[in-house]
Computed example of a mutant assay.
Amino acid sequence: MNKAMYFGRTVAIALPLIMAGSFATAGGLAEPVETVEPVTVMTPAPVRVSGSDWTGFYAGAQLGYGQLEADPALDPTEPDGAIYGVHAGYRYDLGNIVLGAELDFDGTEIEVTNPALELDSIFRAKLSAGYDAGAFLPYLTAGYVEAETSGAADGTTDGDFYGLGVAYKMNNNLIIGGEVLQHDFDGGVLGGANLEATTATARVSFQF
Rank of each mutant, 00 (worst) to 15 (best):
residue 201 T to C: 12
residue 149 T to A: 10
residue 146 E to Q: 15
residue 131 Y to W: 15
residue 96 N to R: 09
residue 67 Q to G: 05
residue 2 N to P: 06
residue 138 P to A: 10
residue 33 V to C: 09
residue 151 G to R: 06
residue 81 G to E: 05
residue 83 I to E: 03
residue 155 G to S: 10
residue 4 A to G: 09
residue 141 T to N: 14
residue 198 T to D: 15
residue 37 E to V: 08
residue 155 G to A: 08
residue 90 Y to L: 07
residue 109 E to P: 01
residue 121 S to I: 09
residue 199 T to G: 12
residue 188 G to W: 07
residue 186 D to R: 03
residue 96 N to W: 12
residue 100 G to A: 04
residue 174 L to I: 14
residue 67 Q to C: 01
residue 115 P to M: 10
residue 185 F to E: 03
residue 149 T to D: 03
residue 31 E to W: 07
residue 112 V to L: 07
residue 202 A to P: 03
residue 132 D to C: 02
residue 204 V to W: 11
residue 22 S to D: 14
residue 98 V to I: 03
residue 48 R to E: 13
residue 48 R to T: 10
residue 42 M to V: 15
residue 173 N to K: 04
residue 145 V to T: 13
residue 173 N to F: 03
residue 42 M to G: 04
residue 134 G to K: 01
residue 108 T to A: 15
residue 15 L to Y: 09
residue 92 Y to H: 13
residue 11 V to T: 12
residue 186 D to P: 02
residue 86 V to K: 04
residue 114 N to C: 04
residue 171 N to W: 05
residue 156 T to L: 11
residue 48 R to N: 08
residue 57 F to G: 11
residue 75 D to N: 09
residue 84 Y to K: 02
residue 123 F to I: 08
residue 17 L to M: 14
residue 85 G to Y: 01
residue 37 E to M: 11
residue 108 T to E: 06
residue 83 I to A: 02
residue 51 G to P: 00
residue 5 M to V: 13
residue 9 R to A: 11
residue 72 P to S: 03
residue 4 A to E: 15
residue 128 S to P: 02
residue 81 G to S: 05
residue 5 M to Q: 15
residue 63 L to R: 04
residue 81 G to N: 06
residue 38 P to L: 05
residue 145 V to C: 10
residue 150 S to G: 06
residue 205 S to V: 02
residue 92 Y to V: 07
residue 141 T to I: 13
residue 208 F to P: 03
residue 58 Y to A: 00
residue 160 D to P: 00
residue 17 L to D: 10
residue 129 A to D: 08
residue 109 E to A: 13
residue 56 G to D: 00
residue 79 P to I: 02
residue 130 G to Y: 01
residue 145 V to L: 07
residue 68 L to Q: 06
residue 158 D to A: 10
residue 127 L to M: 15
residue 42 M to Y: 14
residue 95 G to F: 05
residue 50 S to D: 13
residue 9 R to F: 12
residue 55 T to M: 04
residue 119 L to R: 03
residue 100 G to I: 00
residue 54 W to D: 02
residue 15 L to S: 12
residue 172 N to V: 06
residue 151 G to T: 06
residue 166 V to I: 14
residue 130 G to E: 02
residue 18 I to S: 11
residue 106 D to T: 03
residue 159 G to M: 05
residue 72 P to W: 03
residue 10 T to E: 15
residue 15 L to Q: 13
residue 113 T to F: 13
residue 43 T to L: 15
residue 5 M to R: 12
residue 38 P to W: 04
residue 34 E to Q: 11
residue 22 S to T: 13
residue 206 F to T: 08
residue 9 R to E: 13
residue 34 E to T: 12
residue 9 R to Y: 13
residue 192 G to M: 04
residue 116 A to D: 15
residue 27 G to Q: 12
residue 13 I to M: 08
residue 118 E to C: 01
residue 69 E to Q: 14
residue 196 E to Q: 15
